[in-house]
Amino acid sequence: MNQPASAYFIEDRHDPNETHTLSVLVQNEPGVLARVIGLFSGRGYNIESLTVSETEAQKHLSRITIVTTGTPMVIEQIKHQLDRMIPVYRVVDMTLTRRSIERELAMVKVRGQGEHRVEALRLADAFRARVIDATTESFVFEITGNTDKINQFIDLMRPLGLVEVSRTGVAAIGRGPEGM
């Protein structure tokens, strides 16, 4: 391997990247989100999507859902690095459980007239998107689903006059009666 002159061994890693969704249960306290985000930026991990909200107000618990990509070794590292943070209760790899539901909500603004407008409405109906705002020349659709479905809907809207999109990011929960 041709190495540049360096005090460090520069390694090529060829393991393929995987995408995983992690649910992280944390103490809701000042700085906790900054800690999690700082971990990702500081250690060079990817964040594809991040959603956070308080979920149990009385216990001061928040749930953070992170979609990340990396080699299997990196994904394992991310989980351990998260888990050892003081305010983190649990980290669950929703992708590994194979029993999780993932949803995202998007609001999609489309501007157009005539046939485009009719086509947008027709597709929205097929995707079970709701119209939550309308003018004579625009719609705002609300659509819920997994990431692929939303991406597909947005792609379809593009030639029909897509103006802008606002997405919540992924929220995930396990199937069955048990909590995380």
């Binding site: 061994f9 390694e11 070794m73 394992e76 590292q77 351990h80 690095q81 888990d83 050892r84």
Partner: peptide
């Protein structure tokens, strides 16, 4: 040193209090 040539023929046992040190 070079990680892909590190102790190539051994079984490795690793004791550590920090799970993030394992397989890093």
């Amino acid at each position: 040193g070079r990680v892909d040539a590190f102790s190539p023929g051994s079984k490795k046992i690793h004791i550590d209090i920090d799970p993030s040190s394992i397989n890093k």
